[in-house]
Design a protein around this nucleic acid. Structure first.
Length: 740
DNA sequence: AGCACGCCGACT
DNA sequence: GTCGGCGTGCTC
């Protein structure tokens, strides 16, 4: 009976595929940048539905791919090779496949390149090898040595023990265990697979405010609907956004669905994990690039099998084979870290919304400083907006002030103005911590010879070498090239004439130590020696109050609470303004507001001071007035006038080649064939903002389209039949974020 | 992405 | 005379 049902199902299924005589052929998408899917023969005795992960021959190797649908039939049937096997994992869900198709079309990448994101987990698809454990057999060895006796003692105590644990508990080497196993005195048995611990629902640790309750209820209701919706959860640092979206996660779990939290930077999530554990009783699964292959494989399978209900991850977690996604939360929605810039170019925040749409899930964008795109989408009603009014607990937002560096400059060769120094001194006297912020790594951004004026530039990029005095190196921050700092000038040979121009974080640290010799100073920078371990220890010291002054770059802005921090001093508030980037103002506002928001959380009334040569700049004025919405409104007006995003759409075409003549010729060639369209125009070609990167010369076109215009189709038409010179590359960045 | 085919410089 | 450099093109 059951067999008959299965058989008729099988026939019905095969009937959906096209037949070439007696042979069934299917279309298989391979996870590589090929032009399209290939047709393969589905052997008579093999089940491989749409979405199935199959092994196929390709040339002389074997690769894994996904059955995408019935055969295209564009290749002669006799050329088709048979599928080798079908992996025993659940087929990819239709919503994931639809998402991949959509995304490939949108970002203008081969579908295989998108599939590659999903299948980048080697051997995740093969039958899982169960973990083996030892149990005592019936026989005992004739020679019962002391070591062997200890093994049996352990096994008598605990019946099933894996090798490593058994060796440790019995204090024996692996040789003792293998010896016993060989003679059949102990037996290997598969350990039952353990299911990941499930979060506990409705475990309320804290009471929500009225604001939070309202937002939480609305979000939970949206998640329970099991339909697609997009939300902006908007509230200043400390307003408790996390607690609110925890309730949305709770609602997803209640509905038997999965929750994904995307964070821009996964390396600094310890505090997040602790808060999650406090709320749900267990830590969520974590997905990031630093996982071992075994961990990735296990997570991939557990997500696919629905065993994982909540996962926190970097952008690539979007491509996990979610079986019942209920909500995606994009925390720090405005963060540029969501934009993937190499390989497949996409914005994970935007793709999260689309992924949610295909999965009929809710998507929640959370930020204290929403991006202009998101703010406009919320204003125009495309997203539901949930606003959290105030900070919880103490003192409200820090008091902000700008100091005019023109009227009160720092001492010669120094970077901190007297007011800043006084403010830090006051806070230290009050047993509070102070943060000195400069978003520039290294010692100095430019090294110059005082004798001959030679400027040290990267040999492979259009960029200055940045001095890192601690390591006695010059480094290019674009390609990572490092060279030792020369003793004498490479140009004129003069000794001791190299001068550091402009401050970097290391130089400011020197100054702080000289100014406050008695203070305990900690540095937080992404290129710190010691890596994540040192970073974690430093953060722990700061939290424990064992540090007086923190000197930090960008990373201090992200997701960390400093409970004793009373004051934030920004060394160069102008950095990033006026560099011609479309988003310069927006980003500066976001960054400075985020950094300033670190000050004054628990019992401390915080303050922030911004050093600037242009204190009247609208961005700085908006910051000290604390008027985010007015700032966003003014930005929106300017962008609308320029038909720039989000009121128009952009795409960047970057042409590059090791030979400058080739890029120039290619860009002229392209410029000649720009199609005409009423609602789309093309700017350029112009040398790209970094005109040389990693020894490749770069030119750029910008495509500017009206919101409703078929921009991708326009670009496809433009590029169709294009002959690329040798070694030249063309990359398309839809919705570019960085213009520098 | 791999892997082979193919056509020009330095080696046993 | 071959070994091998990586440019070019194909994989159902």
């Amino acid at each position: 009976m059951a067999g008959q049902g299965a058989e008729s199902q099988r026939l019905a299924f095969r009937a959906r595929f096209s037949h070439c005589g007696a042979m069934t052929a299917v279309q298989v998408l391979l996870p590589m940048a090929l032009t399209g899917p290939y047709d393969y023969e589905l052997p008579e005795n093999m089940e491989a539905p749409v979405g199935a992960i199959v092994r196929v021959p390709l040339g002389k190797r074997q690769v894994d791919g996904v059955v995408w649908g019935p055969a295209l039939g564009d290749v002669a049937p006799e050329k088709l090779r048979p599928i080798l096997s079908c992996h025993p994992v659940a087929p990819l869900a239709p919503d994931l496949m639809a998402f991949m198709d959509w995304m490939a079309n949108y970002v203008m990448a081969p579908r295989g390149a998108v599939l590659n994101q999903v299948m980048r987990v080697p051997s995740a698809f093969e039958a899982p090898r169960p973990l083996m454990a030892w149990r005592a057999g019936a026989s005992r060895p004739a020679r019962m040595t002391e070591a062997r006796a200890r093994v049996f003692a352990v096994l008598a105590d605990t019946p099933l023990v894996p090798t490593a644990l058994l060796a440790e508990r019995a204090q024996v080497s692996a040789a003792v265990i293998t010896g016993l196993a060989r003679d059949g005195h102990i037996l290997a048995v598969p350990l039952p697979e353990e299911t990941p611990q499930q979060p506990q629902l409705h475990r309320h640790g804290i009471t929500l405010t009225e604001d939070q309750t309202r937002a939480a209820q609305a979000l939970a209701a949206a998640v329970s609907q099991k339909t697609f919706s997009t939300h902006l959860l908007d509230g200043v640092t400390g307003a408790g956004k996390t607690e609110v979206y925890f309730e949305a996660i709770d609602a997803a779990l209640m509905a038997g669905r999965q929750a994904l939290v995307l964070l821009p930077e996964i390396s600094l999530t310890n505090q997040f994990l602790e808060r999650f554990a406090a709320r749900f009783g267990v830590a969520p699964a974590v997905w990031h690039s630093g996982l071992t292959m075994g961990e990735r494989r296990r997570l991939w399978r557990d997500v696919s099998a629905g065993k994982i209900s909540v996962l926190v991850g970097a952008r690539s977690a979007l491509f996990l084979p979610w079986s019942a996604l209920g909500v995606i939360i994009v925390d720090e929605e405005h963060d540029a870290g969501f934009k993937q810039e190499d390989g497949l170019i996409y914005n994970a925040r935007d793709m999260a919304i689309v992924r949610a749409r295909f999965a009929q899930a809710a998507c929640i964008l959370a930020s204290a400083t929403p991006s202009l795109e998101t703010a406009v989408n919320a204003r125009e009603g495309r997203y539901q907006r949930h606003h959290l009014e105030a900070r919880i607990g103490a003192a409200g937002m820090p008091e902000m002030a700008v100091v005019d560096m023109r009227s009160t400059p720092p001492e010669k060769g120094r970077w901190l103005v007297p007011q800043m120094i006084d403010a830090i001194r006051d806070r230290l006297a009050n047993q509070e911590q102070a943060l000195v912020f400069l978003n520039r790594r290294g010692y100095a951004p430019l090294t110059i010879c005082r004798q001959c004026g030679h400027r040290y530039a990267c040999g492979q990029c259009d960029a200055w070498m940045v001095e890192h005095r601690f390591r006695r190196e010059l480094m290019c921050h674009h390609c990572g090239t490092v060279e030792p700092k020369p003793e004498q000038c490479v140009s004129c040979g003069a000794v001791g004439t190299l001068a550091a121009c402009g401050p970097g974080i290391e130089q400011v640290t020197e100054e702080v130590i000289e100014l406050f010799p008695q203070a305990r100073v900690a540095v937080l920078s992404s290129d710190l020696r010691g890596g994540a371990a040192v970073m974690r220890r430093t953060l722990a010291q700061i939290t424990a109050g064992e540090v007086d002054i923190i000197v930090g770059t960008q990373i201090v802005a992200k997701g960390h609470h400093f409970p004793h921090l009373g004051f934030v001093g920004v060394v160069d508030a102008d950095l990033g303004l006026g560099n011609g980037d479309l988003r310069a103002s927006e980003r500066t506002y976001q960054l400075l507001s985020q950094v300033a928001g670190r000050a004054g959380r628990e019992a401390i009334k915080g303050a922030a001071m911004l050093q600037s040569y242009m204190p009247d700049h609208p961005v700085l004025q908006a910051l000290i007035a604390g008027d985010r919405d007015q700032f966003l409104a003014r930005e929106a007006t300017a962008r609308e006038a320029a038909r720039m995003p989000p009121f128009g759409r952009l795409a960047a075409l970057i042409l590059s080649s090791p030979r400058q003549e080739d890029v120039v010729a290619l860009s002229h060639n392209l410029a000649r064939r720009i199609p005409r369209a009423a609602d789309i125009d093309v700017l350029g070609p112009a040398p790209a903002p970094i005109a040389r990167l990693r020894n490749r010369f770069r030119y750029r076109f910008l495509v500017r389209a009206q919101r409703s215009a078929p921009m991708q189709a326009f670009i496809r038409q433009w590029l169709s039949g294009l002959k690329m010179p040798n070694g030249a590359r063309l990359s398309i960045d839809i919705d570019p974020y960085n213009f520098l």
